[in-house]
Computed example of a mutant assay.
Amino acid sequence: MNMLNIGCGATFHPDWVNIDLGGGDHAISHNITNGIPFPDEMFDVVYHSHLLEHLPLENALPFIKECFRVLKPGGIVRILVPDLEQIARLYLEKLSSARESEADYDWIMLELYDQCVRQESGGQMERYLRSSHASQSPFVVERMGHSAVYAEQEVRKPAFKLSTRILGHFLCKLRSELAKWAAFAIAGESGRNAFREGVFRNSGEVHRWMYDRFSLGRLMTSGGFDDVRVVSPLESRIPDFARYELDVCRGVVRKPDSLVMEGVKL
């Protein structure tokens, strides 16, 4: 089978074609706002996890249509996004008991809002994970799933991450700094801050929209898919999907906050 994993990040499998904005040894570097860089009807499976919510709403349907385009007839799309319905229900539950468990309430508020409003990488969520509260909270560990295994060691690393492409990183950083000073020269400190925030918000980290089972299902149907249904992270119509450990690793769900939906190109 020919299988495509879009926006793979660090979750990939060598049997798949993996593409990601950052690229790397394991993935093709590509910005999917420019479309999917493959011909029509090339893949049996298209998969993406926690990618769609990073696209502006107006770009969501064109992207879903691109997923449809590169699938063969009979091909399967599998999409994971943060589940707005689940988060909203948990927010109301934790609100009702906030005085007894402020830490749980604080975390679900971060899930709901932080990645939509943050102005710097990691935001309030990373600051929370760097504190001692995270590892002491069963609710946070439950919500983070497999990610909780790595979260503490990852977020406690120094914030600066050296790019393997040192020259490219340096030139990009230099260009950005020059642009910030140009914005400062034209509009002062507020102009520089606005430029910095704009660059960050277009970096792909923030959430541009949220989905529930109705809105995601409608989007997939509008993109051409049939037999659209909600599935468990533990099940799939993709043959032998579990062995790739994209959604469940060693029996632990990677992202328990996910809404998982599949559709078929007839």
Rank of each mutant, 00 (worst) to 15 (best):
Asn2Gly: 00
Pro158Gly: 11
Asn2Glu: 15
Ala134Gly: 05
Glu41Ser: 15
Gly22Trp: 06
Leu90Ile: 02
Leu84Phe: 09
Ala148Phe: 15
Glu235Pro: 03
Met3Arg: 13
Gly198Thr: 09
Met1Pro: 05
Ala10Tyr: 11
Leu55Ala: 01
Val260Met: 08
Asp20Arg: 09
Gly7Phe: 14
Val149Glu: 13
Glu126Tyr: 02
Glu189Ala: 07
Pro37Lys: 05
Asp247Glu: 15
Arg250Val: 06
Phe63Leu: 12
Phe63Pro: 12
Met3Thr: 01
Val70Asn: 11
Glu93Pro: 00
Tyr150Trp: 15
Gly24Tyr: 06
His30Thr: 03
Gly188Arg: 02
Phe68Tyr: 15
Ala60His: 10
Cys8Thr: 01
Leu4Pro: 00
Phe195Asp: 00
Glu85Tyr: 09
Val206Leu: 11
Phe225Ile: 09
Val141Cys: 02
Glu53Lys: 10
Pro62Gly: 03
Asp257Tyr: 05
Phe63Tyr: 13
Ser176Glu: 10
Lys65Gly: 05
Gly188Trp: 01
Gly23Asn: 08
Ser236Val: 01
Gln115Tyr: 08
Asp247Ser: 15
Gln119Ala: 08
Glu102Cys: 07
Asp114Ile: 02
Asp226Arg: 11
Gln136Leu: 12
Phe139Trp: 10
Leu80Trp: 13
Val149Asn: 11
Ile64Glu: 09
Ser232Val: 03
Gly145Ser: 07
Ile76Cys: 10
Val231Glu: 04
Asp20Gly: 03
Gly9Asn: 08
Glu120Asp: 12
Leu95Val: 06
Met261Trp: 05
Ser190Ala: 05
Glu152Ile: 15
Asn59Lys: 11
